[in-house]
């Protein structure tokens, strides 16, 4: 059995204590829009880059510029399929895209996730007897969506020892609900490489 002499044991204990002191925890607020490179997994920078590229591309596409010059077409967002092996909240990506499109003043949206809540409110106003006839909203006046936004997110992951290479491809399309024509489509590719090094240095 290996035993340390008393002074050596004391030195080891001091070393461990020093290391414990050095490994401090600090909490600080960061820049939500800053570049995040913690891991090669899908992160906030990827989400923001995808949203910016897609919004810029859609709003500068000549036929869309022409359509939105005189009016604000109504759109609804269909789910973006997550075909990657990661758990990614694709709704968060489409939320950012639809928010930016809405704030650009070029598009309006109907939220299909809130249809049930809207119906409940309509029933309350029209059938509960609690809301005056003058202030109650009328049925059959909602605006139908002219366009549907949908897409895919896929990835290819490769590993070689301590290196991980991830390729993401985000495809987004806008379809005319009446004609079934795809009016616009674009892709955003992202490549990330992560290397693990000794001691995390």
């Amino acid at each position: 059995m290996f035993r340390l002499s008393k002074p050596t044991g004391l030195i080891v204990a001091s070393a461990v204590f020093a290391a414990t002191l050095a490994g401090c925890t600090s909490v600080k607020y960061g820049d939500a829009g800053g570049v995040e490179t913690t891991t090669a997994d899908f992160g906030s920078t990827d989400l923001q880059q995808i949203a910016t590229t897609m919004v810029d591309s859609l709003l500068t596409f000549p036929p869309i510029v022409e359509i939105t010059a005189q009016r604000r077409p109504v759109m609804f967002v269909e789910k973006v399929k997550n075909k990657t092996s990661e758990h990614i909240d694709t709704e968060s990506v489409t939320d950012t895209i639809s928010s930016r499109l809405l704030r650009s003043g070029k598009f309006r949206f109907v939220d299909m996730n809130k249809v049930a809540a809207l119906e409940k409110q309509l029933q309350y106003q029209l059938e509960s007897g609690n809301v005056s006839d003058e202030s109650a909203v009328k049925r059959g006046r909602q605006i139908g969506a002219e366009f549907m936004m949908y897409g895919n997110l896929s990835s290819i992951v490769k590993r070689d020892g301590s290196t991980k290479d991830v390729y993401y491809k985000f495809t987004l399309k806008v379809m005319n609900v009446e004609s079934g024509l795809v009016e616009w489509a674009d892709e955003k590719e992202i490549r990330k490489t992560a290397k693990k090094s000794l001691f995390g240095l």
Binding site: S14, A18, A19, G23, F199, G200
Partner: peptide
């Protein structure tokens, strides 16, 4: 100890 401090700092 120095190495530990370096990696944990």
């Amino acid at each position: 100890a120095a190495l530990l401090m370096l990696t944990a700092g």
